[in-house]
Computed example of a mutant assay.
Amino acid sequence: MTAKIVMIGGGSGLPVIIKPLVQQNVDLTAIVTVADDGGSSGLLRDYVNIIPPGDIRNILVAMSEGDQDILDLFQYRFKTDDDFLAKHAVGNLLIAALTEMTGDISQAIAKLARYLKIKGHVYPVAKQPLILHAETKHGEELKGEASITAAHQALDHVWVVDNEGNQDIQASPEAIEAILSADLIVYGPGSLFTSILPNIVVPGIREALQKTKAKQVYIANIMTQKGETDAYTDAQHLQVLNKHLQAQLVDYVLTNDQEVPADFVDYQKWGEISKQVIQDPEAIEQEGAKGISGDFLALRDAGAFHDGQKVTDVLLSLVEE
């Protein structure tokens, strides 16, 4: 029987794991945040009133078994001096166009999935654009993912509202069904407060995560994120996740134990100063989870990333247990 794996997140972290995972005999689903308001995605959500397409585009490409030339075109981003089209990715424009043509983001994604020959399912966590809000440790309220990231303040919790400010939001039924029927739920890797948690706080998603019989795994980030998780241990990431889940639902935490060379990461290129996430296995156990420590490190592009194949091997072993 084919294992059903559901990945929850957004940003650039999920595709790293998805690419090797789709090569396995699994039924893979990605549930993606719709609260991105920066760059091309932010512009399209404001002018066309659709959910931000960037994260969906990247995951579609990661799941695709299509022609590489088509994928390169789908990912092509217009140059900054192209004025009207500046910074827009072709795939974002196609998602916007198909959403307008079909009147439904799910139908738009389904069409693109056929065109790109994807192996898996991609569901937005909700079918309407959402606005992320955060409260800092000092009680200040921040609005919008881009503003939250730029503020560089310690965060306490997040929530989402629709464009009218309402918190009564409907999660995508497909996303809820995928969670309830899953064998394994995987959180991340990705920005904790702006990629993972914006999915969990959508009404209906948390309840499904509390109800599912699936094992649940958190892939801890290799590096901290400025303004979001400064000096966080792997256990502190988990504590925040469990706080938003309103229960100790996570069964396993995957943490990299290989040292990132001090002079390897180009902090100027990646736009932030970060430090390697410290392991705290005892605190992980206190949060009701089992720590899985290993060499999950891939050094490339002057940055520290997860080795997708090594993480995939562990995820498959957990499914088989």
Rank of each mutant, 00 (worst) to 15 (best):
1 M>K: 10
3 A>D: 03
3 A>T: 11
7 M>P: 02
17 I>V: 14
22 V>W: 01
38 G>L: 15
38 G>F: 06
42 G>H: 04
45 R>I: 05
51 I>S: 03
53 P>G: 05
57 R>S: 09
58 N>T: 15
59 I>V: 15
59 I>W: 00
59 I>R: 02
60 L>W: 00
61 V>T: 12
62 A>P: 13
64 S>F: 01
66 G>T: 12
67 D>C: 07
67 D>N: 10
69 D>M: 12
72 D>A: 09
74 F>R: 07
76 Y>G: 00
80 T>N: 02
86 A>S: 06
92 N>Y: 08
95 I>S: 01
96 A>C: 10
98 L>G: 06
101 M>C: 05
112 L>W: 00
112 L>D: 07
116 L>P: 09
128 Q>E: 08
140 E>I: 05
140 E>Y: 12
141 E>A: 12
141 E>L: 11
143 K>C: 09
147 S>P: 02
149 T>I: 07
152 H>N: 13
156 D>S: 02
160 V>L: 15
161 V>T: 15
171 A>E: 02
182 A>D: 14
183 D>H: 04
188 G>T: 01
193 F>I: 01
195 S>H: 04
195 S>M: 02
204 G>L: 03
204 G>H: 01
204 G>Y: 01
208 A>R: 09
212 T>P: 11
213 K>W: 03
215 K>Y: 15
217 V>Q: 14
219 I>L: 08
220 A>S: 15
221 N>D: 05
226 K>G: 15
230 D>A: 08
231 A>W: 00
236 Q>K: 11
237 H>M: 02
240 V>R: 09
241 L>D: 08
252 Y>H: 07
253 V>L: 14
255 T>M: 11
258 Q>H: 13
258 Q>V: 09
264 F>K: 13
265 V>C: 06
266 D>I: 05
269 K>T: 03
270 W>Q: 00
278 I>F: 00
283 A>W: 00
292 I>Q: 04
297 L>Q: 06
298 A>L: 13
300 R>S: 12
301 D>Q: 15
302 A>E: 04
306 H>N: 10
308 G>E: 10
313 D>E: 11
313 D>M: 12
316 L>C: 15
317 S>A: 15
321 E>Y: 08
